[in-house]
């Protein structure tokens, strides 16, 4: 389907308030127009879908069959190749949700509310996946499906924040009020992200410390690091592709509702 009927004129609202938003602000407001964003999103779609499929399959096959077993954990370490990318995406997804919240609250960005509504359920799903795969890894390694450890508990809190966001955005008759309340929750809940990150340093936890840091060399073998990075990249592309597809659908649904309302008024 051609996107041309969706191209909407750029209104004054799309350019924000009277204050000069600067270069980044201008770029953000440029893509606040749903028609313009939809055209970009359609062009972007194959560049997200194909790397997602190729990298995710390659990373999982590499991790499952070609990477070595750990000398302590044995083959259970292979769960790491799905658990770590899920954990990374759970935090990244919530950071994206918080950014959407700021864009919505400060600039009343039209697409930020739509994007937040689509990121929420996907983020909740990957956080659930992180908890589930962690539990499946913890049972043979720690002898328990769950422990009230700082890292696990803070990720569980993140999962509840996602669920709260999904519920809150749909809790009001007026969608803009729901979006505003959810945006406040998203921004306030972002305080959980540094707690998750530093929980293994601040408290004595059963969960192992980070093996990959920005400042130091990785503490794992490169034969394990490479498949982990490929999986993380593949899952990140998959996350972006799914959110992109859901966002395109949400824009089209909004446009359909607008047309039906216009038709009813005429």
């Amino acid at each position: 389907m051609s996107a041309s009927p969706l191209a909407e004129p750029v209104s004054a609202q799309d350019h924000g308030s009277a204050t000069n938003p600067g270069r980044i602000g201008s770029l953000l407001h440029r893509y606040a127009n749903p028609g313009r964003f939809l055209r970009l999103s359609e062009r972007l779609s194959p560049f997200l879908v194909w790397p997602a499929i190729v990298l995710s399959v390659a990373g999982m096959v590499w991790g499952l069959f070609l990477s070595p077993a750990d000398w302590q954990q044995g083959d259970a370490v292979r769960i790491m190749y799905v658990h770590v990318p899920a954990a990374w995406l759970a935090s990244l997804g919530y950071a994206a949700l918080a950014v959407c919240g700021v864009l919505s609250l400060v600039w009343r960005h039209r697409l930020a509310d739509l994007a937040a509504a689509e990121i929420g359920p996907v983020g909740a799903s990957v956080t659930f996946l992180c908890l589930l795969s962690g539990s499946l890894w913890g049972r043979p390694m720690w002898g328990a499906w769950w422990v009230w450890d700082a890292r696990l508990t803070s990720v569980l809190v993140l999962f509840f924040l996602y669920l709260g966001h999904v519920a809150l955005i749909r809790a009001f008759d007026d969608p803009s009020r729901g979006a505003r309340a959810a945006a406040i929750l998203a921004v306030a809940g972002a305080v959980d992200l540094p707690i998750i990150k530093f929980s293994v340093q601040w408290w004595n936890t059963l969960h192992q410390p980070d093996s990959i840091t920005l400042t130091g060399a990785p503490t794992m073998s490169f034969s394990m690091l490479w498949p982990l990075l490929v999986c993380t990249l593949g899952f990140s592309f998959a996350f972006a592709a799914i959110v992109n597809t859901r966002l395109r659908a949400a824009i089209l649904e909004t446009r359909t509702r607008q047309l039906l309302l216009q038709g009813a008024r005429e």
Binding site: A69, D75, S125, L129, S133, L136, A238, T245
Partner: peptide
């Protein structure tokens, strides 16, 4: 392969979650 049911469960859940999300989208 040691701990096979746990590994299979984790990979099946991952594939299942991403398949459901992508097909529904």
């Amino acid at each position: 392969m040691t701990h096979l049911p746990f590994i299979a469960g984790a990979y099946a859940a991952t594939i299942g979650v991403f398949l459901i999300l992508s097909v529904s989208a």
